[in-house]
Simulated assay, not measured.
Amino acid sequence: MIVAHGGVQPTIHPTAYVAPTALVSGDVEVGPHCRVLFGAVLTADGGPVRLGEHVIVMENAVLRGTARNPLHVGSHSLVGPHASVTGAEIGERAFLATGCSVFNGARIGAGSEVRVHGCVHLRTTLPPGATVPIGWVAVGDPARIMPPAHHDAIWAIQRGLDFPGYVFGVDRDDPDAMVTLTERYSRALGAHRDDSILRDERSGT
């Protein structure tokens, strides 16, 4: 489904393929020979999403651009099934495996791999050719790559990156942080009520 959001229509190269049950919404560019498979979501929620050439987005992956952090996926990269990538800069020839997560402001160097269920945290920089092993966590700039059992060491870096403050403008220590966060985010996402469907390939319209 192709959807106009915020008055902006997606741009899909004629050589690209978007599956009938994928959703492409707003300021999204799908480059030449890209493949966006079934159930994938590419949504520009305040900031653009850009796919280079020959980018493959597998089933049920979610790619989101934000006002603070646009999303760019470099050419010849693959985003695996059920991956979640928000507001990041992904270099060329990157491999983001099944179920991995890449957060706002992250930068992933060319030729890097984030393996199954790996995590690249907020504002983290992976150098070119880096590998995040299965289930491991990359955090910081430059990144430290650690197993999930090293929670205290991860948190020591992660806390300073300030996810709620950076992404939502909310003070983590405020007892009403979740109230503020959800109300603020709900207002922002409410802009989708004014979206218009440009093409629904499931129905042929």
Rank of each mutant, 00 (worst) to 15 (best):
A44E: 01
R64M: 13
L71S: 03
V57L: 11
V62M: 15
G47A: 01
E59H: 15
T86M: 01
N104M: 10
C100H: 01
H72I: 06
I108Y: 06
G46E: 04
T86S: 01
V49S: 08
E92Y: 10
V73G: 07
P70M: 05
E92V: 12
G99A: 08
L71T: 04
L71G: 04
H76A: 08
H82R: 12
D45G: 05
L96N: 04
I90M: 03
R64E: 15
A97R: 08
S75K: 10
N104D: 15
G46R: 02
V73H: 03
V102T: 09
D45C: 10
S77C: 09
I108W: 09
A83R: 00
G65S: 11
S77H: 10
V79C: 11
P48D: 07
V102E: 08
G52T: 05
C100E: 01
R64P: 12
I56K: 03
L96Q: 03
G52A: 06
H72L: 06
L71D: 04
N69M: 00
R68Q: 15
G47R: 02
V62A: 12
T66I: 15
V79Q: 10
G99W: 06
V102K: 05
F103R: 11
N104T: 11
P48L: 07
G46Q: 06
C100N: 03
A94M: 07
L71A: 02
V57Y: 07
P81G: 05
N60E: 14
E92T: 12
S75V: 05
F103E: 14
R107W: 05
R107M: 06
V62W: 10
A97M: 13
R68C: 10
H82V: 12
L63D: 11
E53I: 02
V49I: 11
R107L: 08
A97V: 07
D45Q: 09
V85S: 01
G99C: 05
L63R: 09
L71W: 06
L51I: 04
V55T: 11
E59R: 14
L96H: 02
G47K: 03
N104G: 12
G52Q: 05
E92K: 12
S75N: 08
G74K: 03
M58P: 04
F95C: 13
L78S: 14
G65N: 09
A94K: 03
G80C: 08
N69Q: 01
G87F: 05
A61T: 14
V102F: 09
S101R: 13
G80F: 04
M58D: 12
H82M: 12
L96Y: 03
S75M: 09
H54M: 07
H54L: 04
T66W: 13
A88Q: 00
H76G: 10
F95Q: 13
D45A: 12
F95N: 14
G46P: 01
A106E: 08
V55N: 08
G74D: 09
A61I: 13
G91L: 06
E92W: 08
D45N: 11
H54P: 02
H82C: 11
V73F: 03
E59L: 13
A44V: 00
V102H: 05
N69H: 08
E89V: 09
A97E: 11
I108Q: 05
H82Q: 12
H76D: 12
A61D: 15
R93I: 07
A83Y: 00
I90S: 04
